[in-house]
């Protein structure tokens, strides 16, 4: 696996390294495709990219999102009820990639990819300008076809590691990922929390120790001070629910405002702002 990691150039890794070189913690933002409409989801993602996000996660609405908390569930349920179709994901990725410098990833539960066929999905994502997929319910043991397809189409594979992961599993996740490793900060589902979990630092340290060059922390991160804290030990910070709430309440403009605010927390101590 380390061989394939070296042969495909990772655009996500480039974006995170560029942030590091500029003295910043990489800011990674999540928004659901099609929420509240396809057009507004494009505008919101563009606002995210143009106000300081280094990486954008476009989440695909799914009928059974077991890792999502109430805010994201409510948003994606609405999108599905409005008749959302998977084809528009590629249109969204294409439009957003064209209008921002941020790298665009897709976050999806696996059955969506499985239904289309992993090779077709990977080809279409690559053609649309997407850089890879974050897979919250896919573990490396089940990802044989995805390894093949991601290598073939030059896509990043972001697997997750959790506070409960054994050392052996962390090694497997780190060795399987390309771009960065997604460190789940708490045992739970997505949702804004008032404080960053004390488990987060340990999750990141263990992934680094297992050889991960880049680890980003997700779940429960909603404020600039969270990102500042995470930046002391992690390479990136992932914000989801807070952005979705902003989009729900204030539209794409509110996403831009919140992103700019979050970006202040991404500036590392001692770096020029």
């Amino acid at each position: 696996m380390s061989e394939t990691v070296n042969t495909v150039h990772s655009r996500t890794a480039d974006a995170i390294e560029a942030a590091r070189a500029a003295g910043r913690t990489a800011l990674i933002g999540y928004l659901p495709a099609g929420y509240p409409t396809v057009q507004d989801s494009i505008e919101a993602a563009v606002a995210l990219g143009n106000n300081g996000a280094d990486v954008i996660e476009i989440g695909i609405p799914y009928s059974d999102p077991v890792m999502d908390g109430p805010v994201i569930q409510a948003a994606t349920s609405q999108v599905l009820a409005d008749g959302f179709r998977i084809d528009s994901v590629f249109d969204i990725v294409k439009a957003v990639s064209a209008r921002t410098d941020a790298v665009v990833l897709v976050m999806t539960y696996w059955n969506i990819v499985d239904r289309m066929g992993v090779h077709t999905f990977a080809r279409r994502l690559s053609e649309a300008g997407g850089a890879g997929i974050i897979t919250p319910d896919l573990v490396p043991e089940e990802a044989g076809d995805w390894f093949e397809a991601s290598d073939r189409y030059g896509l990043d594979r972001v697997f997750l590691t959790a506070p409960s992961s054994t050392d052996e599993r962390i090694k497997l996740v780190v060795g399987s990922s390309r771009g960065f490793v997604y460190g789940v900060s708490v045992m739970g589902v997505t949702g804004a929390r008032t404080e960053v979990s004390s488990a987060a630092e340990q999750v990141v340290a263990r992934a680094h120790a297992a050889g991960a060059p880049r680890v980003a922390v997700g779940l429960g991160i909603s404020r600039p001070e969270h990102i500042r804290e995470i930046g002391r030990y992690a390479d990136g910070a992932i914000v989801g629910t807070a952005l979705v709430s902003a989009l729900r309440d204030g539209g794409p403009a509110a996403v831009g405002t919140l992103t700019a605010e979050l970006a202040t927390g991404a500036v590392r101590d001692g770096a020029d702002a």
């Binding site: 573990v139 089940e142 506070p163 409960s164 992961s165 599993r169 789940v184």
Partner: peptide
């Protein structure tokens, strides 16, 4: 079959 689950639950399943 298999184990198509979030990583957070794999340790518990094991």
């Amino acid at each position: 079959g298999g184990r198509w689950m979030p990583e957070s639950l794999i340790a518990a399943l094991e």
